[in-house]
Design a protein around this nucleic acid. Structure first.
Lengths: 340, 340
DNA sequence: TGTTAGCACTCAATAGCAGTGATTGCTAAT
DNA sequence: ATTAGCAATCACTGCTATTGAGTGCTAACA
C-alpha cells in the first residue's frame, strides 16, 4: 500500500477542510463537499489506509480524522515544490512605512507589526548579525570620574553604546586622544580585526595597556551579543484568535516562551541558515511547543547580513497563504533596506 | 446607620478572606474562621447593612458576598494611614543585580523583572523624563551620501541617536566642524535651551540655516519622545496565575493593552505626579480595565528626574503585601541610581 | 435592645441519564 | 474495485433531580 494520487487528493482535501474549520473531518464531508465522485464508504476505506500510513489521526473513534504532522509536512513540501515561493510580491511594504528614515530596529519592529496584522499570527524576528560589518567611528565620552561611555558606530549606521569603567588616572584629553586614535585605526575594520589592531596599538603606545584590552573586549561584546539576543515581536495577543489556545494553560505556555525569548532567539538564529523554513509541530524541537508551527524567512541588509523574520501559530495553519505573505514580507524587507 | 468599628472589622475580615481565596465569603465563614464571638446570624445582619452602605456586593442571592471597589478603597486608605509605607526596606535589590555598570534602561528592565517575580503580577515602568538634564556631547557622523547619524549624550550617560537627512552639499569636514561647534555651545545646556543657542549660532554662522533648524527639531524630538513612550514590562504572563483571567477574552483584553502601550504609558506618566498611587478597578479610568488595579510608585535618579514603576493585576489583590514590596523596590531603585 | 437559633427559600453547581447525530468498520451485494 | 447498508461507538446536548452554601426573616432569649 502506498500513497497513490487518489489518496493524496483525499488527504489534501482533509487538510484543507481541517485548516479551514479546525474540526475533525469525516468521510461524508469529503465525499460531498469535495466532489470526488466517490462514496463516503470508499473515502472511508482510503482514510483508514491513510491512517495506517501515518497521515491521519483520530481523536476518538466516532470523530472524524485530523491530519498528522507527517501529513502537514507532505502538504507543505508539495506546496513549496509547486512553486509557491516564486512569483513577485503583490504587497507594497514600503507604503506601510512613513517616510522618515529609520534605524533598522524601527524598521524591523514595524515589519513584525505589519506581518502580524497580515497573517493574524504572532510575528517574531531577530536583527541580522554581520561579523563582516565595518566600524565607522568610535568615541569615548567621560561621564563620571570613573565611568565613560563607549559609543561605536558601524558603517550601516547601527549604534552600540556601553558604560565602561575607566581608570581614574585617565584625563579627558587622554581619552579624547585614544578615542581619535582608535577611530582612525579601527574605521573600516571589522570586529574580528579589532583585537589585532589594538594589539599593534598597544605595542606602539606602550601605555594604557589594560584599558585598551578592556576596550577590545567591550567592543566585541557589544557587537556580538547586544541586540542579537533580543526578539522583536508583533501581535503577541493574536494567539488568542485560535481555538487551539482557548485553554489558558496553552496560552500561558506560549506567552511565557515569548517572554523568555532565549529559546526562540536560538531557534531563529538556527533557522537563519536557511532561506526559508517551515517547522511543523514537534519539528521545532522546543518542548511544550509541540502543537505550534514556526515559519521563517531570512531577509538581508545591503551588507549581505542576514536576519530572520517569521510567525508562530498553531499547527493547523493556512500554510500556503502564510508562506506567500512571509515570502513577500521578507522580500520587501530586503528591498526596503536596499533603498535606504 | 454608619460604619462602626464592628462593621469595619467584619468588612476587613471579608476582604482578607476574599483576597486570599477569591470566592464569595458567607456569614458562616466569618463567624467561624475569624472568631468574632458573634453568630452567623448577626454577621448576616451586619453584612446586609454593609451591602446597603455599598461596601459589599452579591454575585447572586445564594452566594456569599464580595468586597466592592468602595470597600477596597477604604481598606487601602486605612492601610496607608496605618503607616504601611514606612519602615525600612528589608529587600536588597542591589544583590539582584550583577556588578556590571549598566544603562538606566537595563536597570529598569531588570527591576521590573524582579518586581514581577516578587509580586507574581505583571510589572510595568517608564523611564524618567528630565527636561532639566544637561547635554554632554553631540556628534554628527555621516553614514551615506545624504544621511548621517546624530548622536546625543546626556550628562547622565543616556544616549540618543537618530538618522537624519543631510544636504548632500555638506562635506564631512563641515559636518565635523558643526559637530564640534555644537558640542561646545550645547554642552551643559538643557533641552529647552537648545533652540535659543542654535538661533544665536545661526546668526553667527549665517549659513546652514535649514540644517541647524532641522537639527534642533531632531534633538528635541529624541529627548522628548524617544524612550519616554515605551513601557518596560516584566512578567507579562503572570496574568494567567489568577482565576480572574481564566477566561480568554479577559486575558486577551489586558494583553492587548500591554501590547499597545500608549494608554498605559499615559497613565503612568500621569501617576508620576504622585509619590504613590493605588487605583482600584474603574478608578484607573481605562475602559476594559474595570477589574484591574494598578499600584505605582515613583523612583528618582540622581538628577531628581522621576520615573514610575508599578504593577497591574486583578482588583482582588493582597494590597498590603504588594504596597510594601513596591515601596521597597522604588526605594531601592532610587538608591541604586545614587550609587551608580 | 441586641443577639441568636431556626427555618423556609433561593439558586448555582453537579451528577445522572436518555436521546441525538456524526462517524466508523465491517459485510455483503453490485 | 466500489458501494450500500447496518450495527456499534461516543462526544455532545439538554433535561431533571439533588446538593449545599448561603440568605432573609421571625421568634425567642439574655
Amino acid at each position: 500500500m502506498d500513497l497513490n494520487s487518489r489518496k493524496f487528493k483525499i488527504l489534501q482535501a482533509i487538510i484543507d477542510d481541517y485548516i479551514l474549520y479546525g474540526i475533525p473531518v469525516g468521510s461524508r464531508t469529503i465525499s460531498k463537499k469535495y466532489n470526488m465522485g466517490l462514496s463516503s464508504a470508499t473515502i472511508r476505506n482510503e482514510m483508514s489506509d491513510l491512517e495506517e500510513l501515518g497521515y491521519l489521526e483520530q481523536p476518538h473513534v466516532s470523530a472524524g480524522r485530523i491530519p498528522s504532522v507527517k501529513a502537514y509536512r507532505l502538504y507543505v513540501d508539495s506546496l513549496i515544490k509547486s512553486g509557491v515561493l516564486e512569483g513577485t510580491s503583490s504587497l507594497n511594504l514600503q507604503s506601510y512605512f512613513n517616510k522618515h528614515i529609520k534605524h533598522i530596529e524601527d524598521i524591523l519592529s514595524h515589519a513584525t507589526q505589519v506581518l502580524s496584522e497580515l497573517t493574524n499570527y504572532t510575528a517574531l524576528a531577530i536583527l541580522p548579525k554581520d561579523t563582516s560589518e565595518k566600524i565607522r567611528n568610535l568615541k569615548i565620552i567621560p561621564v563620571t570620574k570613573d565611568t565613560a561611555l563607549l559609543i561605536l558606530v558601524m558603517q550601516s549606521g547601527s549604534v552600540y553604546n556601553k558604560v565602561i569603567r575607566i581608570n581614574s588616572g585617565l584625563s579627558v584629553d587622554t581619552l579624547n586622544h585614544i578615542s581619535n586614535l582608535l577611530t582612525e585605526s579601527l574605521s573600516n575594520k571589522n570586529i574580528d580585526e579589532v583585537s589585532g589592531v589594538l594589539f599593534d596599538l598597544i605595542k606602539d603606545l606602550n601605555s594604557n595597556r589594560d584599558f585598551l584590552i578592556k576596550l577590545s573586549d567591550s567592543i566585541k561584546y557589544m557587537v556580538n551579543y547586544e541586540n542579537h539576543n533580543k526578539l522583536t515581536l508583533g501581535g503577541t495577543s493574536n494567539i488568542f484568535n485560535y481555538p487551539e489556545y482557548a485553554s489558558v494553560e496553552k496560552a500561558k505556555s506560549i506567552l511565557t516562551l515569548l517572554d523568555t525569548q532565549d529559546e526562540l532567539v536560538e531557534l531563529l538564529k538556527q533557522y537563519g541558515e536557511m532561506q526559508f523554513t517551515v517547522k511543523i509541530g514537534p519539528e521545532n524541537g522546543i518542548i511544550g511547543l509541540d502543537d505550534c508551527s514556526i515559519i521563517t524567512a531570512t531577509y538581508s541588509t545591503p551588507t549581505n547580513a542576514r536576519g530572520t523574520i517569521g510567525i508562530i501559530g498553531p499547527t493547523r495553519m493556512p500554510y500556503k497563504h502564510i508562506i506567500q505573505i512571509l515570502n513577500n514580507v521578507s522580500y520587501e524587507l530586503t528591498n526596503l533596506f536596499d533603498d535606504n
